[in-house]
Amino acid sequence: MIAYLIRRILYAIPILIGVNLLTFALFFVVNTPDDMARMQLGVKRVTPEAIEKWKQQRGYDKPLLINSVATGTSTLTDTIFWQKSASMFVFDFGYSDDGRSIGREISTRMGPSLAIALPTFLVGLLVYVSFALLMTLFRATALDIVGVALCVVLMSISGLFYIIGGQFLISKLWHLVPISGYAGGADSFKFVVLPIVVGIIGGIGSSSRWYRTIFLEEIGKDYVRTARAKGLSELRVLFTHVLKNAMIPILTGVVVVIPLLFMGSLLTESFFGIPGLGSYTIDAINAQDFSVVRAMVFLGAVLYIVGLILTDVSYTVVDPRVRLQ
């Protein structure tokens, strides 16, 4: 397994270089260093000299990919791409275009993002699986039909509606939690309750239907019939046998997203005033801050690769027949 993991990690290097190159190309197709300078310096009273100075100080006055006037390795290294990308492979993200340490910003914002994403993920998983099992338990009854219909309705509604509706009902009308905001430590509880509840409700429809499908597929298999024939209760059949055997497809969708929880949620963080990484990324895109955008894309790619590796490893845990070679 170790050899497999090392191989996967080595595979990640060209993938990350490719992601970096793609981000770089996409960003600079849309924005030029001059545009970035103008965005940072504002509209009023900006002189061409100020733009040149801004670019020079941040290294955006260099050629993009190839420095034709340089010699030797400098042809490649004395470029914007190299200067802005190489250090990221040792997780040195440098400074944003407004002069703030990106590494420090990420470490500060990761906590609030996780405070929302982790409980939403864990409690959500519990709720979705439980609801799916419940529908499976009462399959082909009125409860199942109502449950499925409810799932379809819930998954048809925009996430924004849940946020605004939740804020209106729970915060504005019933005054149970603050509408938005965040505080550190134990004080964070009252701020994260609503985003978590909204996040869970928003995901019930699609997730529960998906899990229900998986469970229904499992429940028709021979080992379930055997378990029933042995006189096991329906609850025991579901929770001990069906759930365990349905873990592989569940893990495929679940484990891969665990590392990405660090990246936060764009919409939720924006509406609930959560100072997480989701809002950091969107702010950087709006501000055309390439330093932050490439750092966040790189981090996202790394975490996704980690998620995929973890998924593979998790298969060996839930199914002893699986071997990583």
Partner: peptide, 18 residues
């Protein structure tokens, strides 16, 4: 000064006196 990116939460918190 609290960061309030969206107008709806801002407005509702104003009405609540916050």
């Amino acid at each position: 000064f609290s960061l309030e990116k969206e107008t709806i939460p801002y407005w509702n918190k104003f009405l609540q006196g916050y």
